[in-house]
């Protein structure tokens, strides 16, 4: 969207918005710190805007030849009870992970 005029610093409000997207609770000191530091880093990263990339395809990964295709067959996996036992709040008998209530 914006090819020019990237922000060289972020406002506290913008940082709070990003934090909400990232599921991070930040305190006031962190909001100020990240507003400054993310601004510095983005200003530095802005140098990539100078490079002409017209017609250049993006590289997301450098896998040359891969072995992703395999037979679709049932294989042993981890035991459900063992996996649940790693959880902070498991319901072993029911086979659930428990979380704080979502509604109400």
């Amino acid at each position: 969207m914006l090819a020019f005029g990237m922000p060289s610093s972020l406002t506290r409000g913008e940082v709070a918005q990003i934090a909400a997207l990232a599921n991070l609770e930040l305190d006031a000191a962190e909001l100020d710190l990240f507003a400054r530091q993310l601004g510095d880093i983005l200003a530095y990263a802005d140098q990539v805007q100078r490079i002409d990339t017209t017609g250049v395809p993006p590289t997301a990964a450098v896998v040359t030849r891969h072995a992703a295709d395999r037979a679709d067959e049932v294989r042993p996996s981890l035991e459900r009870d063992d996996v649940l036992a790693s959880a902070p709040d498991p319901a072993l008998d029911a086979g659930f992970f428990k979380v704080p209530r979502v509604i109400g």
Partner: peptide, 8 residues
């Protein structure tokens, strides 16, 4: 943009 420069 970064992914394009990665190609370069």
């Amino acid at each position: 943009k970064a992914q394009q420069v990665r190609t370069l």
